[in-house]
């Protein structure tokens, strides 16, 4: 029998892994790999464009899962959600779907070097598609920095809707999500009680991640704490409400999650009206100078 070296075996494995869609999609390079499948950059030869092909491991269950994700995405037309172009089976039987190729970085890689306010504006843009999905009765259930892409033109996209919960879906069992960003009700496997507030918990985790290496701020800490409350009733009721609170912080207004003391109120007011305060101080100094030089 033919004797193959380790290098031969590795090369053949790469051949085997390459997606073969019977001609339409020509694989260019592997972009990402995880437990739920492999994502390839591919040339769509029919329409002459680059796409991302998500390919699941073998198995009918995986195919069902992929179809489900493709259907969820197809029902969510929003600039913050990657559009699906096509779905089906590869020649070898693996399920795939083709989606828009996002040129950019994952959130956890994209935020290095950004200021706190820039990060908070990105966070607000993460909340938008999440809120939109909630309005369509879809709960993402796996919100985390790795599932958010920041495009090269600043577009923010929420990815991986494969484990999303549909309001029309039947009962589900098992624990769904990523432990670090998972709401307690998800961790307990109580999927029936999972609702939009479970996603608010995930958003809280993302906000915490975004602020981890930034100067601490009590109002922002309070926003994270409220979003990640153990009891869902104590969290923000919607992603939009959480985004609005972050927006208030950015505008220098009081946030609903934090009660300020008078000193903090004054400090925030001065920070918000910095130019006016500086002008007033300038006036006082000028007055003092006029008094000193002309008042005698």
């Amino acid at each position: 029998m033919l004797e193959l070296s380790d290098r031969n075996v590795a090369a053949l494995r790469r051949v085997l892994e390459q997606p073969d869609s019977n001609g339409r999609y020509h694989p260019v390079r592997e972009i990402a790999r995880g437990g739920m499948g492999v994502v390839w950059e591919a040339d769509d030869r029919e329409l002459g464009r680059r796409v991302a092909l998500k390919i699941l491991p073998f198995g009918a269950a995986s195919a069902d899962w992929l179809c489900r994700e493709a259907r969820v995405l197809a029902g969510l037309e929003h600039p913050g959600i990657v559009p699906v172009h096509d779905a089906g089976l590869l020649a070898d039987g693996r399920a795939f779907y083709a989606m828009k190729l996002v040129q950019g970085n994952r959130l956890d890689q994209a935020v290095a070097g950004l200021t706190r306010n820039q990060r908070l504006r990105i966070f607000q843009r993460i909340c938008e598609p999440v809120e939109f999905a909630h309005s369509r009765g879809i709960i993402h259930r796996d919100l985390k920095p790795e599932n958010v892409m920041v495009g090269e033109f600043g577009e923010v996209l929420v990815m991986d809707w494969g484990v999303a919960k549909l309001s029309s879906g039947g009962p589900e069992t098992g624990i769904i999500g990523t432990p670090q960003y998972m709401a307690p009700e998800q961790a307990a496997g109580a999927n029936d009680t999972v609702d939009q507030r479970s996603d608010v918990y995930g958003l809280g985790g993302i906000l915490q991640f975004l602020l981890a290496d930034q100067p601490s701020s009590r109002p922002l800490q309070a926003i994270c704490k409220k979003a990640m409350a153990q009891d869902p009733r104590e969290r923000y009721a919607t992603a939009a409400a959480m985004s609005a609170d972050v927006g208030k912080f950015l505008e220098g207004e009081p946030v609903s999650a934090y009660r300020e003391n008078p000193f903090e109120v004054a400090w925030r007011w001065m920070a918000r009206h910095r130019t006016l305060v500086l002008l007033f101080l300038g006036y006082v100094v000028m007055r003092a100078l006029v008094l000193y030089f002309l008042g005698r």
């Binding site: 006016l276 002008l279 007033f280 300038g282 006036y283 000028m286 006029v290 008094l291 002309l294 008042g295």
Partner: peptide, 12 residues
């Protein structure tokens, strides 16, 4: 002493 501060008030 009257015109300079008065103008600054106008500026603010």
């Amino acid at each position: 002493a009257i015109i300079v501060p008065g103008s600054v008030v106008g500026l603010i």
